[in-house]
Structure formats: structure tokens, C-alpha cells
Design a protein around this nucleic acid. Structure first.
Lengths: 341, 341
DNA sequence: ATGAAAACTTTACGCGCGTTAATTTTTGGA
DNA sequence: TCCAAAAATTAACGCGCGTAAAGTTTTCAT
């Protein structure tokens, strides 16, 4: 089979002029059906495709879309990224996936590199508290960006995420209705802004129900939540810090660590009579089904969050990169009852 | 601050000619220290960077490196990818991360798209059995590729992975030495070629030790290993298929499912006297530390596998994309004793 | 068949940078 | 101080494609 060097050559072989071929690659429907057929016929025979670098150089806007998540080793983000990737491909874009790996410098570097890719748009789940606001602000000023998962006030053209209040209110209400009111278990200085909203929601719901909020904060930095939850839980259990037999974890990965600690200490967790503790959590992490016991948790509406995020980005791109007003869309949680509470 | 449009403009502002500036960006050491200083000074003031598309168009070889893993939602691959990414960046390359998400079509599409990126090299962890060999072969013929994790006979310029025999021999020997010989628990048709090598190693080691191998194969397709392990274990436990109180799982994710099933059935797993079953596994998955009980497993030499992979790719790139002979490098496992066996 | 609109062809320039060749300037050792 | 080597400058072309302008052919309703 002949090796095609460039569009000129391919155009000659297909018997169509280069500008028309160029037009075809832009939008196959923009040429006459007969010429389209001839081009596609040649395409089958010769396996040519336009040089992406030459194409992108000459377009003001590329078909690239950046997807940035804070921590890809967390299967939650891996799943979301998967969905976003597929949606972008389906819409004819070329997604590029990046993980900040929990580090501000990396997040900055990624955004920096992303700018020189002239992307049509970016889906950004920022680190949160540890993000460099000024860097993100500058980035969003230059690149059409939709924030998801973690909201940074006023940054990006829109935000799509989960309604943290809905998460916590459902778990707290369920636990109090079927047992004792829970203590709230979290990291002392959570990186993710969702954590702060969950704490506030916990306090509000508890007070509304007439209970005294009881928050347990454990030490630890970074994104090794299981480890932090594990260590923290061992301490909590040793010092008997629980006021009731009921615990609500800020997120599932902390809960996984907590459950491991309980298991080691021989403390049975669950809602059955022979259990000493009930534990619920938030997120519905992909592994939550396989913890011991399986984890009762408030599930993100993955599909809607991811789906709406790409939809919003596409709208943003079609609107020329700017919205009149910044919108925030929150999807409620769905309570998933399993064995731990 | 002035917006710089192109290298011409930047060169003028820095008082250096464009070809010299171009040379600088290729290799800062290739210009005289004084001119380098002048360029870098201007660089501070004006924040210019070369247009990557124009650069890549005019270089035969880009500075791009593709990293392809079969399933990014598996934290094992996420961690490896993280390491590979960082190493590439440190060496001055631009890594792009892709996940095949367990699907052949996607793997093919990724390789397809990768080709038009003219990457300097690619680090590929193929799907394995479900890979389209011919597609990968064609790809490797065009792009300098180092395979890792899953070996495909003869494909790629080199392979770096783990020594599956070392994994299984250590776990089997440990279990027999401290208790009963294990049954081997695996998927009926594993996608990953490592699984087959592990089975063979199990048989060989068992026979050498004078025990009869006993393999339990469970149904299930795809990459939802926890689910498959869970269902399979429930069946195995219900039908009492175990011959001894000892099980070796082909990999940790299956083991996670197995442990969940045991927990549900009230079967205590561990090496203590009050336990009914001992369970060991392979991989040292990032979550293996937090299972209930924590998982005794043979750990990949993550650092060496990842480190050697990038090293090998860099050598390959410097050798012009071809090695005289294809090499296979296997790193032995390290037995990690935890509570499950 | 006719004529205007639609689609295509030809021609040519531009994008930003790599790269080469010929020329000029700078450097550093004798 | 001088001179050869090293480095920088100037000038110019090429990469593969987007795109615009002007001219030609095809299409389709009348």
C-alpha cells in the first residue's frame, strides 16, 4: 500500500482538490455526497489522516479537551474520568487526561501545559483547599473551563457537583431513625471543600433533629485517606471517644480505614444486634460494596455529574467560551443501604 | 505585560536572533552562557513559550511519550502510571496517559490516535489475551514501544514485568510451610497473561513440594475482579469446594472479593487459631493493607518495574527506536506478611 | 433548455518554527 | 596582538494544512 505523505498527495489520489478534502475533514457533511463518497473510498484504500500538528497550528481552537482530576489513584476519579473521556470522544473531541496527584505544583504545571495545547475546553476537578487560586483564576480567564466535584467560589464558567447537604442529611436521618445519632468522623484539615460542606451539613441536621453534634477530627495530610482513617480510628477506639454506637465518615476512603481498624480490634460493625458499632459514609466508592462489612453510604449521582459536566462544557464551547452568568449545579445523593449501618 | 506572538517577536525582544533562540529551546546548553542568560532573562520578563504544534510539526520526532494501561480504575495501574508520568516529565518528555478500560476497541483506538501523535516512544501495558495482536504488532513496527506488566510474545522492543513464578512460589511455600497447601483461586478465562503464568507456577511448585494441585476456576468476564471474586467465592464456600483451609488467589482484587464473601458468611480468615481459612494473594494492591483481615500477598517491585520501563524506553529512543534483540526483564516479588495468611 | 445557486478547482498566502548555508562577530589561547 | 575556532546573524526555504479569492463546473428548479 502506498504511503501518503500529505493532504496534497491524498487529494491527488482521490481525484479531489485539496481545499475540498480539507473541507471534508472539517465536516464531512459540508461536501456533496458524491465527492464525500469518493474521498471516503480513497480513505479506505490509502489510510491517510491529517497531520494533527499542522491542523492544530492553523486552527485558532483545537478539538482538544483537557480533563484534570486531583487524584487518579482514587477509583472514584478514575471512573468519572472514564465517563468524561468517552463522552468527549463520542462528541468528536480528543480528551487528554491528567492527574494532579494531590500536589499543588503538579496542578499548576498541568494547567500550564494545558494552556499551550490551546484546548477547546477543560474539565477541571481542582485539588480544592490546596489549589493555587490565582493560578486557576488566570487559567480560567484564558481557557473555557468547567469545574466539577470541588467548587472554587467564582472560578470557572460553571460548576457541577454533588449536593453535600443531601448526602449528609440522608445518612444522618437514616442513622438516627434506625438507631443512635452518629458522630462525624473526618480529617482535621481536609483538602477537599466538600468535606467542609459535609461537616456544616452534619451540624445543621443534628441540631435540627435535636441532637448535639459530635465531631471527631483526626490528624493527617495528603490523599492517603485509608491510612489516615485507619490510624485515626485506632486512636478513637483506644481512647473511647465515641458518644454513641454510631459513626458517619466524611468519605468512604476514611471509612475503609475505619473498618480495617474495627476489624483489627475485634469490633463488629453493622446494624445487627451482635454488632457494637454502625458506620456509614459518603461517596459510594467503587470498593464500598466489598468492604467488610459492605458499606452503607450516600452515592454520588456519577452519571449525572459527569454527564452534565460535559454537556455544560460543550455548551460553553459553542457559546464561544463565555457564559453570561456562572451556574452551579448540584445533584442529590442516593442512599445505598448495605451492611455497615 | 506584552503578549508575545511568536519566536520572531520574542527573539527581537531578547536581542537574540531567532535561529539561536530556537537552538536554545532545543538545548539550553548549546548556546553561549552569556546569550543563554539574555534569553532566560527575557523569558522571565515576557513569559513566552514555543507553539508546541509548530514545533512538533517540524520535528521528525516529538518529545511526546504515550503511556497506555489496560484499566486505570485499578489503583495498581494508577500508581504505576503516576510513576511513569513523573519519570517522563523529569526527563524532559511530555507524557500522555491513556486507559483501554478493558476494551479491545479502545486499545486499538488509542494506539491509532497515538500514531498520529508521532511519539518519541510508548510505554504499553496491553490488555493481554483480549488485545488485538495484529494491531499491536503493526503499532510496534511504527513506534518505539516498551511493553510492561503483560507480556505479548515477541511484541515491542522489550518487556519489563514481574516474575510470576517468584510470586507464586513464595506464597505457596510460605503457606505450606506454616500450614496446609493452598488451593489456587482464579478466573476461568483470565484476560491477563500473568494469570496463566501464575497458574502454571502454582502447579509446578505444588508438585515439587509433593502436593496435588487444586485449581478453582470461577466464571466471569471483564475487569470487575472484586465482583467476580465475590460471586465465585460464595459459590465455592457454599459447595464446599476447598480441600484444605488454605487459598491462594491469582490476584489481590479477586482476593478482596473473596474476603468480602467470607465476611458475609461469617468465616474468619487469618492465620490465628480461631480462623477457619487462610487466604493469600498476589500483587500487593494499594488497598491490600486495608482489607479485613489485611491481605498477605506477594508484592510487585513497583519501583523497579516502572523505573526500568522508562529507562529502557529512553535507551530505545536514544538507539533510534530499535534494539538488536528483544529483552525481557522480570523482577521478583517480595512476600508481604499480613493477617490473612 | 436555462439561469442562478451551489459546489468545486486553481492559485496563493499565512501559520510558527526547524533548519541550512553563507556571512559576520566573538572568543580564547599562543 | 593575532588568528583560527566557535558562536551568532542574516536570509531563505520547507513542513502540512487552513483559508481566502477568483474562476469553472455541476446541480436543480423553472
Amino acid at each position: 500500500m502506498t504511503k501518503i505523505k500529505n493532504m496534497e498527495e491524498f487529494a491527488a489520489l482521490s481525484g479531489i482538490s485539496r481545499p475540498t478534502v480539507s473541507k471534508y475533514f472539517h465536516d464531512p457533511d459540508s461536501v456533496r455526497p458524491t465527492t464525500r463518497a469518493r474521498i471516503e473510498e480513497a480513505l479506505e484504500r490509502f489510510d491517510y489522516r491529517p497531520n494533527i500538528y499542522a491542523v492544530n497550528q492553523n486552527r485558532k481552537l483545537t478539538k482538544n479537551i483537557g480533563i484534570v482530576v486531583p487524584y487518579l489513584a482514587d477509583p472514584f476519579f478514575a471512573e468519572i474520568a472514564r465517563y468524561l473521556e468517552q463522552s468527549c470522544i463520542a462528541a468528536g473531541y480528543r480528551p487528554s487526561l491528567f492527574s494532579s496527584h494531590g500536589e499543588q505544583k503538579l496542578e499548576n504545571d498541568i494547567l500550564d501545559g494545558l494552556q499551550s495545547m490551546k484546548p477547546a475546553g477543560v474539565l477541571l476537578a481542582p485539588l480544592g483547599r490546596t489549589s493555587d487560586q490565582s493560578v486557576i483564576e488566570r487559567f480560567c480567564a484564558n481557557v473555557p473551563t468547567v469545574l466539577f466535584d470541588s467548587n472554587l467560589e467564582g472560578l470557572g464558567a460553571a460548576f457541577i457537583g454533588s449536593d453535600n447537604f443531601s448526602f449528609v442529611s440522608q445518612t444522618v436521618e437514616y442513622m438516627t431513625r434506625t438507631g443512635e445519632p452518629p458522630s462525624f468522623f473526618e480529617m482535621r484539615t481536609p483538602a477537599n471543600p466538600n468535606a467542609n460542606k459535609r461537616r456544616k451539613a452534619y451540624i445543621e441536621v443534628m441540631e435540627r433533629l435535636g441532637f448535639e453534634p459530635h465531631i471527631i477530627r483526626v490528624d493527617g495530610k495528603g490523599w492517603a485517606f485509608e491510612e489516615i482513617g485507619h490510624k485515626g480510628a485506632l486512636k478513637v477506639l483506644a481512647e473511647n471517644e465515641l458518644r454513641t454506637n454510631s459513626v458517619l465518615c466524611s468519605n468512604d476512603r476514611l471509612a475503609i480505614g475505619f473498618l480495617a481498624a474495627c476489624y483489627e480490634q475485634g469490633i463488629r460493625v453493622g446494624r445487627r444486634d451482635d454488632c457494637a458499632l454502625r458506620l456509614a459514609s459518603n461517596d459510594d466508592h467503587p470498593f464500598a460494596k466489598f468492604t467488610c462489612p459492605s458499606l452503607t453510604t450516600a452515592a454520588h449521582d456519577y452519571d449525572n455529574v459527569a454527564g452534565r459536566s460535559v454537556e455544560t462544557l460543550f455548551e460553553l464551547i459553542e457559546s464561544g467560551g463565555k457564559f453570561e452568568t456562572r451556574s452551579e449545579t448540584l445533584f442529590p445523593a442516593r442512599l445505598v443501604l448495605r451492611d455497615s449501618a
